[in-house]
Amino acid sequence: MAAVDAETNHETGKLEFSLDVPFPSPREALIALRSLSPDREPRKGGISKELSVSDSTLSVRWSADEARILRVSVNSFLDHLSLVVETMEMFDSSASQ
């Protein structure tokens, strides 16, 4: 519990989690941002997720009421991220030319 408490933002009482993903260039980071942004979180409340790009880094910041909800969202985001990265590696026609 101590670890969870350490991550808790004391003003809002919410759990926060952040992730930085490096990409080869700003182009890939922006493509990932636009592929991963459109779908809303499946549950109505209890969690929010912000995506942004700065240079070649995709940053994600979560804010959640419960660790359980946060884990589900982060897990599925990581699955989605790997699929997008794999797709870029296999099908970027500009990179292979």
């Binding site: 779908d39 599925s76 989605h80 797709t87």
Partner: peptide
């Protein structure tokens, strides 16, 4: 179903941008 739909949409969005 939501999860399978998202999977397919992610790849479609990514290749649409790449190409």
């Amino acid at each position: 179903m939501g999860a399978p739909l998202v999977t397919v949409a992610l790849v479609a969005r990514t290749v649409a941008q790449l190409w």
